[in-house]
Design a binder for these strands. Structure first.
Length: 982
DNA sequence: AAATATGCG
């Protein structure tokens, strides 16, 4: 297939070809003279000075790299017999003179998926109108049914006389929210929108919904009441629903109360007089088919202070909806802090505060901690440590410096004041002013814990907030080895989303008597409730993902917390008794805190939001986004639209395409969604669904706590990866291995040996079923069975699975360069992307530290900048998948060399006549895929059918290329590799 | 040469 045998492209063309498995490293006779190698580096011209020298070398490096890239471009060739076959195929494809495929907006509107969608929306809106005796198209909400009103009322009255209900009632009546019943209901009656604020534990979520429902039923309006209450998290939607069901002495999903979350739902059987608790995302799915939410009379949006993207977005939609639906009531619920801003957003709607009922918490700051522990900071050996940054992590160095200066002055004046007031002894102030007092110090935490153990004899539980894994790991080993806690024994519980402990009950249960529970947690503990905490130690740091607009990059930064975080953390101490909170920062530092962290919508890419706006037909994106509570910058929107066009979710006029429509219905990010659609078409669903589930939920590997364990996980990963050069296939193998082990009842052992979280693996398998269900509904699968043979024709063909990974992840492609050193050994792999230049592979990747890459292209899913810019997960892929599933192809002549480029970026060498064939195939493939996506259906594999012949040809080319790369294919020009799909 | 805040469809 290729001119050069043995599966190597480009190698040997230049002096330093990137290495390959069978590389003859000695093959570099031409290596020489200028640049690159360790030896004969060119010297800069002598007249340059200072900065110019650096610039000169940088430029020189770029030139060398460019040359290297050129020299190592893979050459793609086709044997004469292959060419003949393709020519014949193309001829027959052309002869099937097809009706010209319509394109553009007309095609989209006429596609199967869009027609079905319009029908759905219309039938929902119309059905509601017809029920109300109105003209179709008139907007209505719920319609009265007097029989229902009567029977709901009778039901409720009967219920109220039951002893269990009355017992629950006595408890409910004590909740602050219940005590404000009359005021709340009065406000509800008189206003369309209200804001309720109140701290956790005041019962606002559980009581307000019930108060509304009961009043509606009692006043004979039961048939006009369906409440939907949104929660940002699945766990709270389910637990709140369970709680309310219990309070009403009912069964979940059977009577008035139900829930619906992404993974499962228990929707009330009766369709009037209900309360449905659901995650915010679920409401968006409802909005697609029922844009006016005609099934609901009340929308309660809970936990708005979280300011997550979906809640912000939902508020925006509700702002319009209240005008279209005068009968719709909206209740916004938030923690106390910024109720004003919300109220203003809804035309100064009334707000109502429910006072909390928690115990007082004494607060101490760094100065107090230093006083109580007599801790002294060791002066740093390294003077310049990485500083925890303030509000805006992306400000320039200069700005950062001047901010530091400003803070230093503030701290000094704070210390001078304390000195005048004689509040703290001099030695404490001396420590407080040291720069080390501003750094996260685990030794200080240890001595603070010792201090608590000495002074508190009741073994009150301690909760420590740290920013991340690193500190959890280090602090717990440090505490474990420190045996002197004044004789009290301790139970350390690390709490992190990637630790298997998260599901364990011990976090929430009381420790055995005589032991003190110490929970070391990230901000995961800010929202979960651990009741018995008496002491909180707050390091004041939080990790946040931000979006760097200028560099079009996601970053993860450690920052100072906001006042809202600090208050929330403090509050964790006063759940059951008065508590103490130690802040490990000075009062001066606290003065620099913002009130809130930036809302998520300002810190995230907007692709999915924009796609939702298009899907929900909310009109122009730009004006729409401006009306959000905190409008994102214009540039962010532009980047999102550009990206959506690149992914073909929008056409060049920014209209939603059928692909975009499908993607907005799938519960995952766009690229993963694209991947599973392609898996449906190319019949390799099982492995791809494993990958999709893991990319959209989480990696099944956990990290065990304990020094050096990371290395063991890495090793397990690599063993499972088994030379696939793919983190994605590693996950496929992990799940396959689990299922094999399961059939022999050895799954526990398998998980233990491979550091797999059994619960995560099970969740992933569950999610795969759900995704298959989606593909089935979209008509890409005839059954919803993940391992159905019919839909896994190509699942064992790794070349194809990787090609589908590439099809989904494109344009997330990086290139690898490995230099051969003077002594013939291989250097480190250097990874680059077009947009970012140099990037690193994340250490957990199976490709990290690898320097033998048979192909130089890596597809990746996640890229993030922490201390380095790294690719978190990669799969090595060959040229053909990029040519068939990548971007725009173009051809040019470079002297007598034919050069093909994909999106003016990735380049391959190819003769012009080969390019003609490949381009024609690609054109047919694009048309076929466009058609398949607009009008879904199973792929016809019969070789006499047009699509069957085309698909077979493309699969054959990709498969042969992949096999050849691994050295498994025929090195000669023989065509023995024809029966791939047999 | 080296690392993993948290959610949701």
């Amino acid at each position: 297939m290729r001119g050069r045998g043995g599966g190597s492209y480009g190698r040997g063309r230049g002096s330093r070809g990137y290495a390959s498995s069978s590389a003859h490293h000695s093959q570099g006779p031409g290596r020489g003279g200028e640049g690159g190698g360790t030896g004969g580096r060119l010297r800069h011209p002598p007249h340059l000075k200072g900065r110019e020298i650096g610039l000169w070398y940088a430029k020189e490096q770029a030139r060398i790299r460019e040359k290297e890239d050129k020299e190592t471009r893979p050459k793609i060739e086709l044997s004469p017999s292959k060419r003949a076959k393709i020519t014949e195929l193309l001829g027959s494809l052309e002869r099937h003179s097809k009706a010209s495929i319509p394109t553009g907006a007309a095609a989209i509107n006429d596609s199967h998926v869009m027609r079905r969608y319009r029908q759905n929306v219309e039938s929902n809106v119309n059905a509601a109108a017809i029920r109300a005796g109105l003209r179709p198209g008139d907007i209505v909400g719920l319609v009265r049914n007097s029989e229902w009103d009567e029977s709901l009322k009778n039901d409720l009255e009967r219920k109220q006389s039951s002893p269990k209900y009355q017992t629950m009632m006595r408890f409910r009546e004590k909740l602050p929210a219940y005590q404000f019943k009359d005021e709340f209901l009065k406000l509800m009656r008189e206003n369309q929108v209200i804001v309720i604020s109140g701290e956790a534990g005041c019962g606002k979520t559980t009581q307000c919904c019930q108060l509304i429902l009961d009043e509606m039923i009692q006043s004979g309006n039961g048939s006009l009441c369906n409440i939907v209450c949104t929660q940002p998290r699945r766990i709270s939607a389910v637990t709140v629903a369970e709680r309310v069901t219990e309070e009403r002495d009912e069964q979940i999903g059977r009577n008035s109360v139900g829930y619906s979350i992404g993974l499962e739902s228990r929707i009330p059987e009766r369709d009037k007089g209900t309360i449905l608790f659901c995650t915010t995302g679920v409401v968006f799915k409802y909005l697609i088919d029922d844009p006016k939410l005609t099934k609901y009379s009340h929308v309660v949006v809970d936990e708005i202070h979280d300011r997550d993207v979906l809640s912000d977005f939902l508020l925006m939609i509700l702002k319009d909806l209240v005008n279209l639906r005068p009968d719709l009531k909206v209740i916004l619920m938030s923690a106390t802090l910024n109720a004003d801003k919300l109220s203003n957003y809804f035309r100064h709607c009334p707000r109502f505060n429910i006072p909390g009922s928690t115990f007082p918490v004494t607060e101490y700051f760094m100065e107090d901690v230093l006083l109580q522990t007599s801790f002294t900071f060791e002066t740093n050996k390294r003077p310049q440590q990485r500083r925890c940054r303030g509000k805006n992590p992306r400000k320039s160095e200069d700005q950062g410096k001047s901010e530091d200066q400003k803070f230093k002055r503030m701290l000094e004046s704070h210390v001078r004041k304390l000195e005048r007031d004689k509040t703290y002894p001099r030695h404490v102030l001396k420590e407080l002013i040291k720069p080390e007092a501003e750094e996260l110090n685990l030794d200080l935490i240890t001595s603070l814990i010792l201090h608590i153990c000495e002074t508190d004899r009741d073994n009150g539980a301690i909760l420590i907030f740290v920013p991340g894994w690193d500190q959890i790991s280090k602090l717990s080993t440090q505490l474990q080895s420190c045996c002197n806690f004044s004789g009290c024994s301790i139970l350390i519980i690390p709490l992190h989303s990637k630790l298997p402990t998260v599901n364990q009950k011990e976090v929430f249960s009381r420790p055995p008597s005589g032991r003190r529970k110490i929970v070391i947690a990230t901000n995961i503990a800010e929202t979960s409730t651990i009741d018995d905490i008496v002491f909180v130690i707050d390091t004041g740091r939080i990790k946040i993902t931000n979006f760097d607009l200028q560099r079009n990059l996601e970053t993860r930064d450690t920052e100072w917390v906001s006042m809202a975080n600090a208050t929330q953390r403090k509050g964790r101490a006063g759940r059951v008794q008065p508590g103490i909170c130690y802040h490990l920062y000075s009062k001066a530092r606290e003065n620099t805190f913002e009130s809130f962290k930036k809302p998520e919508i300002l810190r995230k890419r907007l692709e999915e939001v924009v796609l939702q706006i298009k899907t929900l037909n909310l009109g122009m994106t730009r004006p729409f986004l401006k009306r959000l509570l905190d409008p994102p910058p214009y540039k962010s929107l532009e980047l999102a639209i550009q990206r959506l066009i690149q992914l073909h979710a929008l056409d060049s006029d920014e209209n939603l395409t059928p692909l975009g429509f499908h993607l907005s219905h799938l519960p995952m990010d766009l690229q993963t969604g694209k991947m599973i659609l392609m898996a449906g078409i190319f019949e390799c669903v099982d492995p791809i669904l494993s990958i999709a589930a893991s990319l959209s939920f989480k990696d099944p590997f956990y990290i065990p706590l304990g020094l050096g364990q990371e290395k063991n996980v890495d090793r397990a990963r690599r063993e499972l990866g088994d030379g696939s050069k793919s983190d994605h296939l590693t996950i496929v193998r992990a799940i396959e291995g689990y299922q094999r082990a399961q059939s022999q009842n050895r799954e526990r052992d398998f998980c233990y040996r491979n550091f797999l979280s059994e619960s995560t693996v099970n969740l992933l398998m569950n999610m795969k079923k759900q995704l298959a269900e989606h593909l089935h509904q979209m008509e890409y699968m005839s059954t919803a069975t993940v391992d159905d043979v019919e839909h896994n024709v190509n699942s064992d063909n790794i070349g194809i699975v990787k090609a589908i990974i590439c099809a989904g992840l494109y344009p997330n492609i990086a290139t690898v360069n490995v230099r051969v050193r003077m002594d013939g050994s291989l250097g480190f792999a250097k990874i680059r992307t077009r947009e970012d230049g140099k990037v690193y592979l994340h250490p957990k990747s199976v490709n990290c530290n690898e320097n033998i890459f048979e192909s130089r292209y890596l597809a990746y899913f996640q890229k993030m900048k922490t201390s380095f810019l790294s690719l978190y997960d990669t799969t090595m892929i060959t040229p053909f998948p990029l040519i068939f599933f990548g971007g725009q192809l173009s051809f040019r002549k470079e002297k007598n060399l034919g050069v093909v480029s994909v999106d003016q970026n990735l380049e391959f060498l190819m003769d012009e006549d080969v390019f003609d064939l490949v381009q024609a195939l690609r054109k047919h493939l694009d048309e076929f895929l466009e058609e398949k996506i607009a009008n879904p259906g199973p792929t016809c594999w019969h070789e006499l059918s047009k699509e069957g012949a085309l698909m077979r040809a493309i699969i054959e080319l990709i498969t042969a290329e992949y096999k050849e790369m691994l050295g498994e294919g025929s090195a000669s020009d023989s065509d023995s590799d024809d029966d791939i799909i047999a």
